[in-house]
Design a protein around this nucleic acid. Structure first.
Lengths: 342, 342
DNA sequence: CACGGCCGTGAGAGCGTTCTCACGCCCCCG
DNA sequence: CGGGGGCGTGAGAACGCTCTCACGGCCGTG
């Protein structure tokens, strides 16, 4: 066996124990903050750890504890555009903030096609992570099943399509859309269109359903001409808005199912010479940073991110610790944020 | 000890061996595709693996092989805006494509502040990953040193500030910027400004240096008034461009150090009533998707992503396998892509 | 017909942790 | 002054895998 590697062999618990003049068990106790260690022993061990720059080998530890102290956020999207969605960035930020004070690690995994999804599934099943938070679940997504069968703790970020037995956290997309549309109705608008999200995502479906419900309740018809499907991107929103304007020139309000799309819609409206909110009132969804800075500032539905990310980790941890029912889920309330666009 | 967990205990090599009627060693050989197994034994093992849904425990394997078959892409950025940078998305996409055919896994880690950087450093040192690809290195970044000291294989995506002993892969930012600026000069422009990237990132510095060099070579003065610092975001580009227009109303060309910023710059120019390219010619950098779709389509410098991502993994793998010098690095050539904006 | 070599296999020793016991020691209480 | 109960400690067995080594059996060669 030739040692071609230049990497220094890392010190082991044994070496620390020898240097500190104690047993392996005592070193382990110090490392794991057990109270049952005498101050002298503790000090000796800490000195030895510092001197050897000892870092515990996680593989060895995980082998016996069956814990990796790592959870994965899986981003399940064919197009990498999702990276640019501020909602996604917020979730990542919120999650790592929620884990900052713990000794849990967060890793991001992306899966663009079925092959990569299987790779991710394998990664999780092999025991690299204690649990998975899965984002952006399209309708035919195989990953939840793969993970469920393997018994990997799983929480979805977003309600699943079928009401399957799986934990999830989501905003009240439908309720939020109802409020958004009612707000447009409240400003006297009657020709209210919607730019939806992708309709193979539940957030897209639910927000459209809310718009529909609000119109029907108000005695208006949610005519198919009033609906254009977007893809949660700015460009998609712009395109969809242009479509709507072509189809329904006299529309006076629009509920756009995400803020980036709403920014695109604002651009399409400006290009078409419509004033916002005078001619067309616009309400978005997300309360992304851009909603404040765009022109005019966007009236929008705030997602309760501050609630959602801690819930996500909490529900997952409860599963990991084995104290949760299989499908404990939560819906978080949204809130209307009034700005200039409606 | 109460077993509160509902997770089924996963089968072990031993159980597979018993079911297949062979020894643990033989099962291991089948799992690892060793040729030294008789067809009958192989078949029996494969059947047993399928029946038990056996998945090897990576922790146990890693403990002896000292390999995790996982590499980390570390994103080292205080602001989460980077997620929205198409260059970052391209790197992620390229990297996972480069690893798709291998049994290597790619995980993303983010580090927003020093605390999170230390957490990432710990994660890597503890042996969770075989190596690290580090993106977005600001000037005072402690992570490279942490990893170097720990002996974790490391390749930077982007040239480091000081020419320290560390492997990296980068585009020829300076050369690309020279070509971009020369292209502007070639169209007869003489008042050529630049919107730079953040100047605590080497890409920002190098691209500005290229602009400077091209001007000097052409006998023009790279006056400080011609420089506005951006942050690689669209909004930043718009702001910086507005600044430049206020400072140098008669400028006739601008080299913008990234395409998202260039899109912002186009918007600022339009807002100021300048026609592109008639009044002001614009050259971007990156050849992001948006460069094709914006109005007018952007002349830009293409980063050789198709070269860079495989190189990144190759250099890292060589270090992991212990066959690479400590600081084998590469600079990849860029290319001018001519569209309508200049 | 005998012998060396190769091939498939299994036994067993680690890999670096944690965790359960059991064992002295000291202290407190009766 | 004796006995019980912590409390700090160490020995040693796992955890699930890989890998070296040795061992039969078969073949081919002399």
């Amino acid at each position: 066996m030739t040692d071609t590697s230049t990497r220094p062999a890392s010190p082991t618990l044994d070496e620390v124990a020898v240097l500190a003049g104690v047993s392996r068990a005592t070193v382990s106790r110090v490392i794991n903050d057990s109270p049952r260690v005498s101050p002298e022993a503790r000090e000796a061990v800490q000195a030895a750890v510092a001197e050897l720059r000892y870092v515990p080998n996680r593989m060895a530890r995980s082998l016996v504890t069956r814990r990796t102290d790592t959870i994965a956020l899986v981003l399940n999207e064919p197009n990498t555009q999702v990276f640019s969605d501020p909602f996604f960035a917020s979730i990542v930020r919120g999650l790592s903030a929620a884990l900052a004070d713990t000794d849990l690690n967060l890793v991001l995994l992306t899966a663009r096609d079925e092959r990569e999804q299987e790779k991710v599934g394998r990664y999780a099943r092999q025991g690299h992570v204690d649990g998975v938070i899965l984002m952006s679940v399209h309708s035919e997504d195989p990953l939840p099943d793969i993970l469920a069968v393997a018994g990997v703790p799983l929480v979805l970020c977003g309600r699943p399509f079928d009401d399957r037995e799986v934990a999830y956290v989501d905003a009240d997309n439908r309720g939020g859309a109802v409020v958004a549309t009612q707000h447009l109705l409240g400003t006297g608008r009657r020709r209210i269109a919607t730019v939806t999200g992708p309709l193979d995502m539940i957030a897209g479906v639910d927000r459209q359903a809310g718009w529909r419900q609000a119109l029907i309740t108000a005695g208006l018809e949610p005519h198919p001409d009033l609906v254009a499907e977007g893809d949660f991107t700015e460009a998609g929103g712009q395109r969809a808005m242009a479509e709507l304007l072509a189809r329904v020139p006299d529309l006076d309000g629009v509920f756009v199912a995400s803020d980036p799309m709403a920014v695109g819609a604002l651009r399409a409206l400006r290009a078409a010479g419509r004033r916002v909110p005078e001619d067309v009132a616009v309400v978005g969804f997300d309360d992304a940073a851009v909603a404040e800075t765009c022109d005019p500032p966007l009236t929008t539905i705030a997602q309760p991110l501050a609630d959602m990310t801690p819930l996500l980790t909490e529900l997952l941890m409860r599963q990991i610790d084995g104290v949760a029912g299989p499908a404990e889920s939560r819906i978080c309330q949204t809130q209307l944020v009034r700005r200039a666009s409606a």
